[in-house]
Write a protein that binds this DNA or RNA. Sequence first.
DNA 1: TTTTTTGATGGGAACGTTCCCATTTTGTTG
DNA 2: CAACAAAATGGGAACGTTCCCATCAAAAAA
Lengths: 356, 356
Amino acid sequence: MKSKYISIIDIARQLNISKSTVSRALTGHPNVNAETRAAVLELAQKLDYQRNPLALGLAQNSTNIIGIMVPEFMSTYFPSVIIGAQEVLHAAGYNSIICHNNESYNAEVLNTKLLLSYHVDGIIVSHTKETRNFDHFQMIQRRGIPLVFFNRTSDELNVPHVVVDDYEAAFHAVEHLIKIGRRRIAHLAGPDSLINTRLRQQGYLDALKKHKIPIDPQLIISYDLTLEKVRIYIKHFLDLPEPPDALFTINDPTAIAAMEVIKQKGLSIPKDIAVVGFSNDLSAQLVSPGLTTVAQPTFDLGREAARLLLQDINAVVKNDYTIKKAPAVRLKTKLIIRESTVPAQQARRGTRNAKR
Amino acid sequence: MKSKYISIIDIARQLNISKSTVSRALTGHPNVNAETRAAVLELAQKLDYQRNPLALGLAQNSTNIIGIMVPEFMSTYFPSVIIGAQEVLHAAGYNSIICHNNESYNAEVLNTKLLLSYHVDGIIVSHTKETRNFDHFQMIQRRGIPLVFFNRTSDELNVPHVVVDDYEAAFHAVEHLIKIGRRRIAHLAGPDSLINTRLRQQGYLDALKKHKIPIDPQLIISYDLTLEKVRIYIKHFLDLPEPPDALFTINDPTAIAAMEVIKQKGLSIPKDIAVVGFSNDLSAQLVSPGLTTVAQPTFDLGREAARLLLQDINAVVKNDYTIKKAPAVRLKTKLIIRESTVPAQQARRGTRNAKR
DNA sequence: TTTTTTGATGGGAACGTTCCCATTTTGTTG
DNA sequence: CAACAAAATGGGAACGTTCCCATCAAAAAA
């Protein structure tokens, strides 16, 4: 079957010139007669010609496509990072392919291979919770394809990355709880595989230490995946002889699930237990009471990641893509204070910047 | 610069056979010696060879890629439709490219051209709120590329589509309000450009008619885009000499914004005003009181859309892709009853199926 | 006028596949 | 053992680009 698409050759034939000339006219090469160029452009317009990026990719061994791989995209977090990244990429003339893998390591490996097979010019990644083996990312680097991590990163690999300052964010969140008079602050942490989890936990510990509050291992639980477990753990907390008077969680869904349990038990938030989440999901302002949480600059995360990547891509083109210490960008967070820690009338001007 | 990728030719050279044979071995063509095949497969594995889909696309004029275009993906709605679609597409051996356009008509046109230029084998679309001109979709059809609409569709075009029964869903939602004793039911409709809006409004009107409740045009407002306007309209409703005792909105964010205003005014939900939304966003169960709303089978919408598309793609291949009446699938919705219409203790078994 | 430079064009390789056709090798049958 | 069929392989076109090199004409310099 003859192709349904107009090619450069169709144009050449109709104008009785060679495809080389048409190519030159379309790409803006200087050495082409003004009239010829005009004729080509006009016909191209009329036939609704569009350059075939597959052929271009083959010929130039560069596709102008960037792969963006995220673990999920049902929350607002990753979509807004993606939008930020695309803004910058698009301005630089790149298109992007979005991949998601539902937090599955296997799907991540598969998608990596898929992106590589499409000869993308670079890849932006936030890896899954399950990912402990980074071979597939090393494969990307070995092939000389620029790679940037965001949000979730790894010490094992030397990859440029952009993250928020999880340590400081957690530190300030916990300090906020201390300042409103809480002393038994529980922490529901995430899976140990994530650096974020470890940093936030360290921030939690150091804030307690700074204010001379004894650390009670009973009040720290690392958990994996299901919200069902959160409910069990919260009940466990509440049944302790000395139950906590505050809770700091790894993310907002966890905090919201916890709040449900607490309310069901007939306890009052924040009077009996104050709650702080992380990430400022859309739902954080919809729940009642509103959830105090750490806002992340999601769009900027995406923009920065894209910038780092473009930097590397340009280095590759110029051939000075040498392995050196990969740059790391750390962005500021902002503690959003709502009624889950400070009752409404006090929460007037309740936002402040973390120091950095 | 030599390509960083292994090609079929590299394998051929190393084994001292022709690229044709390698190609046959890899694609599973019958006419190839068992030993040769084994050797090829082994070396391919060892070198981590991956077939180049760009070249394949060029050669076969078919890319095995499906374009999925949605107006936004910050809510859970479109991502879950996408996941449903990908499930079916992936099982059939297709990859997909996700495009979003932030409800911008211009971006939609651009993305359409982009997808076409990548020679996708089919496109699944939910168009923007702004879209009133469908030329770009007709262009897709003119090129003989299968196209399927979901959620938002158009009567102007003969395109296979899968939707929920907006009319019935709205009818039942309003009937629910009537059954709990409401008589002055206001309706915040969406932009007239969407069929969904018109169907839901008709469902609203017919439910009132059926129960002999007079229609008050004052209680119906069509609005566009911003949540800011919602707040103004709600205040307007509440200031009427005879304010409404119930509210049915075009979607959940609108309902939630309305609830905020109502609560601020010191009115009680559902006692003074009952509220029903549409779509069952994640936030519907997080707000307080929980929002009664119409749940859409999002995953199934995606799955069905993908199935319709694959059907057409296969028809194209078999060359019996004739223009006939495009199939339309209509899926059932489910009214999720929460405390915004029925106080907690009554809402026990509070879900029911709409008839179809 | 002759030579050189510049501008405009055409021809063809290359990118990595598949697929058709031709050729060689192997196997089967009369 | 010839004759032929079947199986296995190779060669090369095609897909749509770009890009290098060659050609040719026209314009500028000698």
